[in-house]
Nucleic acid binder design. Structure first.
Length: 476
RNA sequence: GCCGAGGUGACAGAGCGGCCAUGUGGCGGACUGCAGAUCCGUACACGGGAGUUCAAAUCUCCCCCUCGGCCCCA
């Protein structure tokens, strides 16, 4: 079965065939290094982490590049406020970013280029654009001449006429056309600067991505990803620059993810309605957060609220519980071809969903579908070796991709297991004597501590359940 | 205004011409000392209006609404 991806450029589901067979170059816009990352960043990071994992599972050698932007207005302002250099600010927030990403189980990219470390390459690119007539210097800045490229708007599906009549006329001094955008910005007081043939200044927003992506991935990328708010102007401009520079197609597949909303608005720094990854991880374990993010197709927006997170927690608990039971079960001697068939079908459904534009929600549905059959067979002691293998394979694939099955361990209490063993034994004993008062007391007291006891035919089991948060859910 | 993505049952969320999505929560039942877990059954649905078709959440047209983009933003 072929992998298909929704391509913003064509507006369709395109069959995925990388430029170089077997290899995929993938570039995703990372963060601006001036603050802690929030859940919107987590959504993007986890989305592309899973896309990358799926490509690798399918046998592609993926080179994955994520950039850091450390030169732009917010960074400059923040660095000035703190009285530190852009570099120091960037170091701090890059370190925080790695902490957050690793806590979330996001695998490291292969390269993390930083904008300010690529100024020479950007200067060269700008020089070439001027020499080729795509850009012009004016009052110490350099602008890209939008009228020079006929295809302007091909990614965001807008025409220059539309945009010009849209009231977006922020005529900056020195621009020949209001639609032109800056490649190099002339120095202003209070801003850091680098030397250039056009006077001291700093690079514009889009040129860094053109330069860095092509430096690490070559002139044509297979996949360029980011949040949907980046389609215009950032990706559109990046595209125009890059293709003007090389004369070759810049990106084969543009993938854009839906945004994280809070109520009716998107979560963003500028609106101030954001929740940092760190804060959310204080209340929900990483697996739950990942599951929450992957429970919706990546192109759709997700509303951030505690109800949805709680639901993700419950759903995930159910998968984990079956996963544990399955691994522990003694297999039946009689073959269960029906169950085996169902497990095979679930695996096929799972893959088919992932191959259709990384439909994680559809893939989860395939897991749940099998879950029911497995639980039933487990209850009846009818899980045969072959079916068990097949089911475990599905769970394995699921976990390789989603990275959610390993539950967070209770910290630092190796003594818990042996102690629990004693308590469970005492309680079993009480139950045998029909001393239900004692048995219930043990169960209730443990529950208050966040440990659930569950009786079953094969003896009682206990599991660690995080205590409900003390804070009001609205405080998250 | 222009461009893009959407509007699916109580909520969340797949599907995108004919067949059960799935999850959380309801309701009824099985199991259990009880609870939980698990299973079985069940109710609740495709924004509105025209049209195409033997057949439409699924295709076409019109309308309404929401979100995103057009300064920065994953």
């Amino acid at each position: 079965m072929t992998l298909r991806v929704q391509n913003t450029m064509t507006g369709k589901l395109d069959d995925f065939t990388p430029v170089n067979p077997g290899r995929v170059g993938m570039y995703v816009c990372g963060i601006n290094t001036y603050d802690d990352s929030h859940m919107g960043h987590a959504k993007s990071a986890v989305t592309f982490d899973v896309i990358r994992r799926h490509l690798e599972r399918r046998g592609y050698a993926v080179k994955y590049v994520v950039n850091f932007t450390d030169v732009e207005d917010h960074c400059i302002q923040r660095a000035n406020e703190l009285g530190i250099s852009l570099d120091e600010l960037a170091k701090k927030y890059i370190a925080e970013y790695f902490k957050d990403m690793r806590a979330l189980g996001v695998r490291d990219a292969d390269e993390y280029p930083v904008a300010s470390h690529h100024i020479p390459e950007m200067r060269e690119a700008i020089k070439k654009l001027i020499a080729d007539g795509f850009a012009y210097a004016s009052m110490g800045s350099v602008y890209f001449k939008v009228s020079k490229v006929k295809e302007y708007g091909k990614l965001s599906h807008q025409s220059l006429d539309d945009m010009q009549s849209s009231g977006r006329v922020d005529s900056e001094e020195g621009k020949e056309d209001p639609m032109d955008f800056a490649l190099w910005k002339a120095w202003k007081p209070g801003e850091p600067s680098w030397d250039s043939p056009w006077g001291k200044g700093r690079p514009g927003w889009h040129i860094e991505c053109s330069v860095m992506s092509m430096k690490y991935l070559g002139e044509t990328l297979d996949i360029h990803g980011g949040g949907s708010e980046l389609v215009f102007p950032h990706h559109e401009n990046e595209l125009m620059q890059s293709e003007s520079l090389t004369g070759k197609p810049f990106v084969k597949y543009w993938l854009h993810g839906g945004l994280m909303n809070v109520g009716a608005e998107k979560m963003s720094k500028s609106l101030g309605n954001f929740f940092t990854i760190k804060d959310v991880l204080k209340l929900y374990e990483p697996g739950v957060v990942r599951f929450f993010l992957l429970n919706t197709h990546y192109r759709k927006p997700i509303d951030f609220n505690d109800k949805a997170l709680d639901e993700a927690k419950l759903s995930l608990a159910r998968i984990r519980s079956t996963w544990d039971r399955l691994r522990d079960t003694k297999t039946a001697e009689h073959p269960n071809p029906d169950l085996w068939e169902r497990a095979k079908k679930a695996r096929a459904d799972f893959e088919a969903a992932m191959d259709e534009d990384f439909n994680t929600r559809g893939a989860v549905a395939a897991v749940f579908e099998l879950l029911r059959d497995i639980n039933k067979a487990l209850d009846e002691g009818k899980v045969c070796e072959k079916a068990k293998e097949e089911a475990i394979a599905l769970f394995g694939e699921f976990d390789r991709l989603f990275g959610v099955l390993a539950a967070q361990k209770a910290e630092g209490d190796d003594m818990l297991a042996p102690l629990m063993h004693i308590l469970v034994e005492l309680r079993e004993d009480a139950r045998k004597r029909k001393d239900f008062k004692a048995a219930d007391l043990i169960r209730d007291r443990l529950k208050a501590l966040g440990i659930a006891i569950e009786d079953s035919a094969g003896g009682a089991k206990w599991k660690y359940t995080k205590k409900p948060p003390e804070e009001s859910p609205n405080d998250i």
